[in-house]
């Protein structure tokens, strides 16, 4: 793959920051309905839900990034990803457009980035008027990284 081939990202917003998730990793985007909270679970686990017969574990990205938990209602959006054979959902504030960006435009993470944000970002794209962090899905959902961040 050449550096000029475009990569398609699904953009999401968490606490005002734009993130891009490689569309190849996205299973689906859906509105959270009937989330079952799991007592005694780590804080970033918002709960579990049934998505067409599959049990999906929902991770609150705000908590994951060290912010206060999101108030979840039926309009709350989530991005479904698969990780090690299990279905996960990343709870975000808003799902935005799908963007195709070339890898050559990608820049390294700024050194000044908050370490909790840096931990889940693999790079940055400069868009019109704002920065888009490329979300490293593996690190974002990995329980080991979760433990470190916590």
């Amino acid at each position: 793959m050449s550096a000029d081939d475009p990569i398609t990202y699904v953009t999401v917003e968490v606490a005002g920051q734009l993130f891009g998730i490689n569309i190849g990793r996205v299973r689906e985007v859906f509105a959270l309905e009937r989330l079952t909270r799991v007592p005694l679970s780590p804080a970033e686990i918002a709960g579990v839900l049934n998505l067409r017969g599959r049990i999906v574990t929902a991770i609150d990205m705000r908590v994951r990034l060290g912010l206060s938990p999101k108030t979840i209602d039926e309009h709350t959006m989530a991005v479904g990803v698969d990780h090690k054979g299990e279905a996960l959902a990343l709870i975000v504030d808003r799902v935005g457009d799908v963007l195709a960006l070339t890898a050559s435009d990608r820049e390294a993470k700024p050194a000044t980035l908050d370490p909790r944000w840096a931990a889940v970002a693999e790079g940055v794209h400069r868009l019109d008027g704002q920065l888009m962090l490329i979300l490293d899905v593996e690190r974002a959902v990995d329980s080991a990284t979760l433990a470190q961040a916590a």
Partner: peptide
């Protein structure tokens, strides 16, 4: 889910008739 099975109080999950977990 693997990241929840350290909670010894739960042995699993199930989906009820109304679709809730």
């Amino acid at each position: 889910a693997s990241r929840l099975n350290h909670i010894a109080l739960f042995s699993g999950t199930t989906i009820l008739g109304d679709g809730s977990v």
